[in-house]
Computed example of a mutant assay.
Amino acid sequence: MKTLKLSLFAVAGALLLSFSANAQQATTKKAAKATPPKTEAKTLTRSAPAATTEAPKNMTPSGITWNEDSHTFGDIEKGKPVSHEFTFKNTTKQTVLVTGVKAQCGCTATNYTKTPIKPGETGIVTATFNAANPGSFSKTVTVTTNDSDVNKILTIKGKVIAPEGEAAPAPAVQH
């Protein structure tokens, strides 16, 4: 009887070990299916993004040629807005359209050529600065076109001076 008990106990232990090993293998297989295998990075560049409905970005600069991208007004009188026209030429083989012009802040107004610009034709972006506060300034205007996703940044600079007879603002006094 004692031998029979030991035999049953041994068989039960063997079955328990067998079930435990099978369960562990099944768990490992499920985890392997859930986690994709790791691959080594061969280059430092990003891999191509997954396919989306969005069109690929055109990160080459615009094909239009600007006469200048910065203008310095010098000293200007407070309260008198000043304007500058930035001109450009369409040096591409396609018609270009300025799709947007955005000033850095509300102190600068913009205007631009809104009609399509054919190859060889010129267009204009006008920046008008409202000289309301004395001091130096540097403002940007961002131009967006249909031929590139890279924006063009135009800059206007200068110094606003108070007119003769106007007192300079008093320095702040701390109490």
Rank of each mutant, 00 (worst) to 15 (best):
T3D: 14
L4R: 12
L4G: 10
L4Q: 12
K5A: 12
K5Q: 08
L6N: 13
S7A: 15
S7H: 08
S7E: 14
F9M: 14
F9R: 13
F9S: 15
A10P: 02
V11T: 14
V11Y: 05
A14D: 03
A14I: 11
L16A: 15
L16H: 03
S18R: 00
F19Y: 13
F19K: 10
S20L: 06
A23R: 09
A26E: 11
A26I: 10
T27F: 09
K29V: 14
K33I: 09
T35P: 04
P36K: 10
E40L: 12
E40T: 14
A41F: 05
K42S: 09
T43K: 07
T43G: 08
T45I: 14
T45M: 11
S47Q: 11
A48F: 11
A48Q: 14
A48R: 14
P49Y: 05
A50V: 13
A51G: 07
T52R: 06
T52K: 05
T52W: 05
T53W: 10
A55H: 08
A55N: 11
P56V: 10
N58Q: 10
M59C: 12
P61D: 02
P61W: 04
G63Y: 01
G63N: 04
I64W: 01
W66N: 04
W66Y: 03
N67F: 08
E68I: 02
E68G: 02
E68S: 11
E68R: 06
D69F: 06
H71F: 09
G74K: 01
G74E: 01
G74P: 02
D75N: 10
D75Q: 07
I76S: 01
I76N: 02
E77A: 09
K78R: 13
G79P: 03
G79L: 04
G79R: 04
K80D: 05
P81E: 03
V82S: 04
V82Q: 07
H84V: 00
E85N: 13
E85T: 03
F86R: 00
F86H: 00
F88D: 00
F88A: 00
K89P: 04
N90V: 03
N90Y: 02
T91M: 06
